[in-house]
Protein backbone atom coordinates (compact mmCIF):
# COMPACT_ATOMS: atom_id res chain seq x y z
CA UNK A 1 0.00 0.00 0.00
CA UNK A 2 2.84 2.39 0.74
CA UNK A 3 4.39 1.95 -2.68
CA UNK A 4 2.87 2.39 -6.09
CA UNK A 5 0.54 5.10 -7.18
CA UNK A 6 -1.85 7.22 -5.20
CA UNK A 7 -4.22 7.05 -8.14
CA UNK A 8 -4.00 4.46 -10.84
CA UNK A 9 -7.02 4.24 -13.10
CA UNK A 10 -7.20 2.50 -16.45
CA UNK A 11 -9.62 2.99 -19.29
CA UNK A 12 -12.28 4.73 -17.25
CA UNK A 13 -15.44 5.49 -19.20
CA UNK A 14 -18.73 7.04 -18.26
CA UNK A 15 -21.73 7.87 -20.33
CA UNK A 16 -24.86 9.83 -19.51
CA UNK A 17 -27.49 8.63 -21.92
CA UNK A 18 -25.98 8.99 -25.38
CA UNK A 19 -23.33 11.43 -24.18
CA UNK A 20 -19.90 10.01 -23.45
CA UNK A 21 -18.68 12.19 -20.62
CA UNK A 22 -15.45 10.29 -19.98
CA UNK A 23 -13.88 8.26 -22.74
CA UNK A 24 -11.25 5.68 -21.88
CA UNK A 25 -9.14 7.73 -19.54
CA UNK A 26 -6.06 6.27 -17.88
CA UNK A 27 -4.18 8.27 -15.27
CA UNK A 28 -1.43 7.63 -12.78
CA UNK A 29 -0.67 9.95 -9.92
CA UNK A 30 2.44 9.18 -7.89
CA UNK A 31 2.44 9.52 -4.14
CA UNK A 32 3.28 12.99 -2.91
CA UNK A 33 2.62 14.43 -6.33
CA UNK A 34 0.49 17.47 -7.14
CA UNK A 35 -1.35 16.53 -10.25
CA UNK A 36 -3.18 19.21 -12.22
CA UNK A 37 -6.33 18.25 -14.05
CA UNK A 38 -7.21 20.61 -16.84
CA UNK A 39 -9.78 20.86 -19.55
CA UNK A 40 -12.50 23.19 -20.76
CA UNK A 41 -16.00 23.27 -19.30
CA UNK A 42 -17.89 20.05 -19.77
CA UNK A 43 -14.78 18.08 -20.67
CA UNK A 44 -15.37 15.48 -17.96
CA UNK A 45 -13.11 16.51 -15.08
CA UNK A 46 -15.75 16.39 -12.39
CA UNK A 47 -17.12 13.13 -13.72
CA UNK A 48 -13.66 11.52 -13.64
CA UNK A 49 -13.01 12.69 -10.10
CA UNK A 50 -16.39 11.40 -8.96
CA UNK A 51 -15.59 7.97 -10.37
CA UNK A 52 -12.25 7.98 -8.56
CA UNK A 53 -13.84 8.54 -5.18
CA UNK A 54 -16.71 6.13 -5.65
CA UNK A 55 -19.53 8.60 -6.22
CA UNK A 56 -20.25 7.38 -9.73
CA UNK A 57 -20.15 3.90 -11.16
CA UNK A 58 -17.84 3.79 -14.16
CA UNK A 59 -19.32 2.17 -17.25
CA UNK A 60 -15.95 0.74 -18.09
CA UNK A 61 -12.44 0.52 -16.77
CA UNK A 62 -11.00 -0.06 -13.35
CA UNK A 63 -8.52 1.43 -10.99
CA UNK A 64 -7.30 2.04 -7.51
CA UNK A 65 -7.01 4.99 -5.18
CA UNK A 66 -4.39 4.61 -2.45
CA UNK A 67 -4.32 0.95 -3.42
CA UNK A 68 -8.07 0.49 -2.84
CA UNK A 69 -10.25 -0.63 -5.70
CA UNK A 70 -12.50 2.19 -6.83
CA UNK A 71 -15.47 -0.13 -7.23
CA UNK A 72 -15.09 -2.65 -4.42
CA UNK A 73 -13.39 -0.65 -1.67
CA UNK A 74 -15.45 2.50 -1.75
CA UNK A 75 -15.82 2.66 2.00
CA UNK A 76 -12.07 2.59 2.51
CA UNK A 77 -11.49 5.18 -0.18
CA UNK A 78 -14.00 7.51 1.44
CA UNK A 79 -12.19 7.14 4.73
CA UNK A 80 -8.77 8.09 3.39
CA UNK A 81 -9.55 10.52 0.62
CA UNK A 82 -10.57 14.13 0.95
CA UNK A 83 -12.90 15.22 -1.82
CA UNK A 84 -13.83 18.81 -2.36
CA UNK A 85 -16.81 19.27 -4.61
CA UNK A 86 -16.89 21.89 -7.31
CA UNK A 87 -20.14 23.35 -6.03
CA UNK A 88 -20.20 24.34 -2.36
CA UNK A 89 -21.74 21.35 -0.67
CA UNK A 90 -21.69 22.08 3.00
CA UNK A 91 -24.75 22.95 5.02
CA UNK A 92 -25.55 26.60 4.66
CA UNK A 93 -27.97 26.44 7.56
CA UNK A 94 -25.29 25.20 9.94
CA UNK A 95 -22.59 27.42 11.39
CA UNK A 96 -18.97 27.10 10.38
CA UNK A 97 -18.17 25.24 13.56
CA UNK A 98 -21.19 22.94 13.28
CA UNK A 99 -20.21 22.03 9.73
CA UNK A 100 -16.66 21.17 10.68
CA UNK A 101 -17.83 19.32 13.76
CA UNK A 102 -20.25 17.25 11.69
CA UNK A 103 -17.52 16.32 9.24
CA UNK A 104 -15.21 15.34 12.09
CA UNK A 105 -17.93 13.09 13.52
CA UNK A 106 -18.50 11.46 10.14
CA UNK A 107 -14.86 10.40 10.14
CA UNK A 108 -15.00 9.22 13.75
CA UNK A 109 -12.12 11.48 14.63
CA UNK A 110 -10.86 10.82 18.15
CA UNK A 111 -9.55 14.33 18.79
CA UNK A 112 -12.53 16.01 17.25
CA UNK A 113 -12.65 19.20 19.22
CA UNK A 114 -8.97 20.06 18.78
CA UNK A 115 -9.10 19.27 15.08
CA UNK A 116 -12.08 21.55 14.60
CA UNK A 117 -10.54 24.34 16.66
CA UNK A 118 -7.34 24.05 14.70
CA UNK A 119 -9.15 24.17 11.39
CA UNK A 120 -11.09 27.26 12.43
CA UNK A 121 -7.89 28.91 13.56
CA UNK A 122 -6.16 27.93 10.33
CA UNK A 123 -8.94 29.61 8.43
CA UNK A 124 -8.64 32.69 10.60
CA UNK A 125 -12.34 32.46 11.36
CA UNK A 126 -12.11 32.11 15.12
CA UNK A 127 -14.42 35.03 15.82
CA UNK A 128 -16.83 34.08 13.05
CA UNK A 129 -17.15 30.40 13.90
CA UNK A 130 -20.75 30.80 14.99
CA UNK A 131 -21.76 32.43 11.71
CA UNK A 132 -23.92 30.41 9.34
CA UNK A 133 -21.91 28.97 6.49
CA UNK A 134 -24.50 30.33 4.08
CA UNK A 135 -23.61 33.87 5.13
CA UNK A 136 -20.00 33.51 3.98
CA UNK A 137 -18.85 35.10 0.73
CA UNK A 138 -18.11 32.80 -2.22
CA UNK A 139 -14.37 32.77 -1.68
CA UNK A 140 -14.73 32.08 2.03
CA UNK A 141 -17.11 29.23 1.38
CA UNK A 142 -14.47 27.77 -0.86
CA UNK A 143 -11.88 28.05 1.87
CA UNK A 144 -14.19 26.50 4.44
CA UNK A 145 -14.88 23.58 2.11
CA UNK A 146 -11.19 23.05 1.63
CA UNK A 147 -10.51 23.09 5.35
CA UNK A 148 -13.37 20.64 5.90
CA UNK A 149 -12.16 18.13 3.35
CA UNK A 150 -8.66 18.18 4.85
CA UNK A 151 -9.93 17.85 8.40
CA UNK A 152 -9.45 14.11 8.63
CA UNK A 153 -5.87 14.25 7.38
CA UNK A 154 -6.52 12.38 4.14
CA UNK A 155 -3.69 10.71 2.28
CA UNK A 156 -5.09 11.86 -1.04
CA UNK A 157 -6.90 15.06 -1.88
CA UNK A 158 -9.25 15.27 -4.82
CA UNK A 159 -9.98 18.94 -5.28
CA UNK A 160 -12.45 20.04 -7.92
CA UNK A 161 -11.71 23.65 -8.78
CA UNK A 162 -10.84 24.55 -5.19
CA UNK A 163 -9.74 28.08 -5.99
CA UNK A 164 -12.58 29.20 -8.23
CA UNK A 165 -13.55 32.65 -7.00
CA UNK A 166 -10.75 32.86 -4.45
CA UNK A 167 -8.65 36.05 -4.28
CA UNK A 168 -4.97 35.96 -5.38
CA UNK A 169 -3.49 36.20 -1.91
CA UNK A 170 -5.61 33.34 -0.62
CA UNK A 171 -4.78 31.32 -3.72
CA UNK A 172 -1.08 31.80 -3.09
CA UNK A 173 -1.51 30.67 0.52
CA UNK A 174 -3.50 27.72 -0.68
CA UNK A 175 -0.84 26.59 -3.12
CA UNK A 176 1.88 26.96 -0.54
CA UNK A 177 -0.20 24.75 1.71
CA UNK A 178 -0.59 22.19 -1.07
CA UNK A 179 3.16 22.07 -1.59
CA UNK A 180 3.71 21.70 2.12
CA UNK A 181 1.29 18.75 2.19
CA UNK A 182 2.91 17.27 -0.86
CA UNK A 183 6.27 17.41 0.88
CA UNK A 184 4.68 15.36 3.67
CA UNK A 185 3.81 12.69 1.11
CA UNK A 186 0.18 13.59 0.59
CA UNK A 187 -0.96 13.29 -2.99
CA UNK A 188 -3.19 15.87 -4.61
CA UNK A 189 -5.28 15.83 -7.73
CA UNK A 190 -6.57 19.28 -8.43
CA UNK A 191 -8.69 20.50 -11.30
CA UNK A 192 -8.32 24.11 -12.31
CA UNK A 193 -8.82 26.58 -15.10
CA UNK A 194 -5.94 28.82 -13.98
CA UNK A 195 -2.72 28.53 -15.97
CA UNK A 196 -0.53 29.84 -13.17
CA UNK A 197 -1.86 27.02 -10.99
CA UNK A 198 -1.23 24.50 -13.74
CA UNK A 199 2.38 25.63 -13.85
CA UNK A 200 2.72 24.90 -10.14
CA UNK A 201 1.72 21.25 -10.51
CA UNK A 202 4.28 18.49 -10.77
CA UNK A 203 2.27 16.76 -13.45
CA UNK A 204 -0.63 17.72 -15.66
CA UNK A 205 -3.35 16.03 -17.59
CA UNK A 206 -5.43 17.80 -20.15
CA UNK A 207 -8.76 16.34 -21.15
CA UNK A 208 -11.16 17.48 -23.76
CA UNK A 209 -14.51 15.99 -24.62
CA UNK A 210 -13.83 13.15 -22.25
CA UNK A 211 -10.54 12.21 -23.91
CA UNK A 212 -7.09 12.56 -22.45
CA UNK A 213 -5.14 14.72 -24.92
CA UNK A 214 -1.88 15.30 -23.10
CA UNK A 215 -0.20 14.49 -19.87
CA UNK A 216 3.15 14.82 -18.17
CA UNK A 217 5.03 17.68 -16.54
CA UNK A 218 4.20 21.11 -17.85
CA UNK A 219 7.44 21.16 -19.83
CA UNK A 220 6.67 17.76 -21.33
CA UNK A 221 3.18 18.84 -22.26
CA UNK A 222 4.51 21.94 -23.99
CA UNK A 223 7.24 20.01 -25.77
CA UNK A 224 4.90 17.25 -26.89
CA UNK A 225 3.12 19.52 -29.33
CA UNK A 226 6.33 20.80 -30.97
CA UNK A 227 5.10 24.35 -31.33
CA UNK A 228 7.32 27.35 -31.74
CA UNK A 229 5.94 30.73 -30.80
CA UNK A 230 6.57 34.40 -31.27
CA UNK A 231 5.21 37.33 -29.40
CA UNK A 232 4.32 40.52 -31.27
CA UNK A 233 4.09 43.78 -29.36
CA UNK A 234 2.55 46.94 -30.77
CA UNK A 235 -0.65 48.70 -31.78
CA UNK A 236 -3.82 47.25 -33.35
CA UNK A 237 -2.93 43.67 -32.61
CA UNK A 238 -6.46 42.43 -33.03
CA UNK A 239 -6.47 43.46 -36.69
CA UNK A 240 -3.11 41.80 -37.13
CA UNK A 241 -4.41 38.65 -35.49
CA UNK A 242 -7.17 38.44 -38.08
CA UNK A 243 -4.75 39.07 -40.92
CA UNK A 244 -2.21 36.49 -39.81
CA UNK A 245 -4.66 33.69 -39.21
CA UNK A 246 -4.60 32.29 -42.76
CA UNK A 247 -0.93 32.98 -43.49
CA UNK A 248 1.44 30.08 -44.24
CA UNK A 249 2.94 28.50 -41.14
CA UNK A 250 0.56 30.22 -38.75
CA UNK A 251 -1.49 27.70 -36.87
CA UNK A 252 -2.72 29.77 -33.99
CA UNK A 253 -2.92 33.36 -32.90
CA UNK A 254 -3.90 34.30 -29.40
CA UNK A 255 -4.22 37.86 -28.18
CA UNK A 256 -2.97 38.47 -24.64
CA UNK A 257 -3.65 42.12 -23.86
CA UNK A 258 -0.46 43.83 -24.97
CA UNK A 259 1.01 40.89 -26.86
CA UNK A 260 -0.08 38.64 -29.68
CA UNK A 261 1.15 35.07 -29.46
CA UNK A 262 1.57 33.36 -32.80
CA UNK A 263 2.40 29.67 -32.90
CA UNK A 264 3.06 27.06 -35.54
CA UNK A 265 4.77 23.73 -36.01
CA UNK A 266 7.00 24.77 -38.89
CA UNK A 267 9.40 27.16 -37.21
CA UNK A 268 11.12 28.51 -40.33
CA UNK A 269 8.01 29.06 -42.36
CA UNK A 270 6.38 30.80 -39.43
CA UNK A 271 9.37 33.04 -38.84
CA UNK A 272 9.45 34.13 -42.50
CA UNK A 273 5.74 34.92 -42.49
CA UNK A 274 6.01 36.95 -39.33
CA UNK A 275 9.11 38.89 -40.45
CA UNK A 276 7.31 40.07 -43.59
CA UNK A 277 4.15 40.84 -41.61
CA UNK A 278 5.89 43.10 -39.13
CA UNK A 279 8.40 44.60 -41.59
CA UNK A 280 6.34 47.55 -42.76
CA UNK A 281 4.79 48.32 -39.35
CA UNK A 282 5.97 49.63 -36.04
CA UNK A 283 5.75 46.23 -34.40
CA UNK A 284 8.22 44.36 -32.29
CA UNK A 285 8.68 40.64 -32.96
CA UNK A 286 10.17 38.42 -30.28
CA UNK A 287 10.83 34.70 -30.11
CA UNK A 288 9.31 33.23 -26.98
CA UNK A 289 8.88 29.92 -25.22
CA UNK A 290 5.53 28.42 -26.01
CA UNK A 291 3.33 28.74 -22.94
CA UNK A 292 1.09 26.12 -21.47
CA UNK A 293 -1.89 28.19 -22.34
CA UNK A 294 -0.88 28.36 -26.02
CA UNK A 295 -0.60 24.59 -26.00
CA UNK A 296 -3.98 24.07 -24.40
CA UNK A 297 -5.68 26.38 -26.84
CA UNK A 298 -3.89 24.57 -29.62
CA UNK A 299 -4.96 21.16 -28.29
CA UNK A 300 -8.54 22.26 -28.05
CA UNK A 301 -8.72 23.60 -31.58
CA UNK A 302 -7.00 20.54 -33.04
CA UNK A 303 -9.23 17.86 -31.64
CA UNK A 304 -12.72 17.11 -32.78
CA UNK A 305 -14.94 20.06 -32.18
CA UNK A 306 -16.86 20.07 -28.95
CA UNK A 307 -20.16 18.52 -29.83
CA UNK A 308 -21.97 20.10 -26.98
CA UNK A 309 -24.17 18.58 -24.35
CA UNK A 310 -27.00 17.65 -26.65
CA UNK A 311 -25.09 15.09 -28.71
Amino acid sequence: MSDGYAIDVRNLSKRFGPKIAVDNISLQVARGEIFGFLGPNGSGKTTTIRMMCGLLNPDGGSGTCLGYDIIRDRELIKRHVGYMTQKFSFWEDLTIRENLDFVARMYDMPNRREAVDEAIQGLGLTDRAVQLAGALSGGWKQRLALAACMLHNPQLLLLDEPTAGVDPAARRDFWEELHRLSALGISVLVSTHYMDEAERCHKLAYIFNGKLLAHGSSREVVASQGLSSWAIHGENLSGLSEALRDQPGVEQTVLFGTALHVSGKDQELLERTLQTAVADRSLRLEKMDTTLEDVFIYLMSRSTPMDGDAS
Partner: peptide, 9 residues
Amino acid sequence: TMENLLAMP
Protein backbone atom coordinates in the same frame (compact mmCIF):
# COMPACT_ATOMS: atom_id res chain seq x y z
CA THR B 1 -24.97 18.52 0.05
CA MET B 2 -25.86 14.93 -0.86
CA GLU B 3 -22.65 14.68 -2.86
CA ASN B 4 -20.71 15.67 0.21
CA LEU B 5 -22.58 13.23 2.40
CA LEU B 6 -22.00 10.40 -0.08
CA ALA B 7 -18.29 11.21 -0.22
CA MET B 8 -17.95 10.71 3.51
CA PRO B 9 -17.65 7.30 5.12
